[in-house]
């Protein structure tokens, strides 16, 4: 507003009696005080920031370790590898099926052999009740 111009009795921002931006003078004073506080925030110590970063790194490391444990193969996979892997499993399965089949429906040659005709001590080539064995039992 130009100097000397009438203001019709209205309050102006520069009127010292109504200067609401002065600290402590009404709402404007409080606003100035709050603005001053906003402009000068308490600064954290570098040591605190370093500790927070270290916590962050520790949580990341913890997570990496957990993920590594999760991605480890199960115990049975190690055993399978020791046996020769999946192909050996196929061989083992075939042998098991063959054994089961022989047990349920033995072929003729095997049946006569298993019936005892061929299963004599002479056939086996040893005497299970030899003197030596009896001596050991006593």
């Amino acid at each position: 507003m130009p100097v000397g111009a009438p203001n019709w009795g209205m309050r102006t921002m520069t009127d010292p009696k109504h200067d609401t931006q002065r600290p402590g003078s009404g709402t404007g004073g409080l606003d100035a005080l709050l603005a001053e506080a906003r402009a000068t925030p308490p600064e954290p110590a570098r040591d605190l920031l370093a500790r927070i970063e270290a916590d962050g790194a520790a949580v990341q490391a913890e997570r990496r370790n957990r993920d590594a444990v999760r991605s480890q193969p199960p115990w049975w996979r190690g055993m399978l590898e020791a046996l020769g892997g999946a192909p050996s499993l196929a061989g083992l399965a075939a042998a098991s099926v063959a054994g089961l089949w022989i047990g349920i429906a033995p072929p003729e040659a095997a049946a006569s052999w298993l019936s005892g005709d061929e299963l004599s001590s002479a056939g086996l080539g040893f005497d299970p009740l030899s003197g030596y064995d009896l001596a050991v039992w006593e």
Partner: peptide, 26 residues
């Protein structure tokens, strides 16, 4: 950060911790 980037931990600390600290102080 969740993907394991160490720089992200530093950036998040620098960005957020001072504001949180100031708020806690007040």
């Amino acid at each position: 950060y969740a993907a394991g980037d160490p720089v992200a931990a530093r950036a998040l600390t620098a960005r957020l911790a001072p504001r949180i600290y100031a708020h806690a102080m007040r």
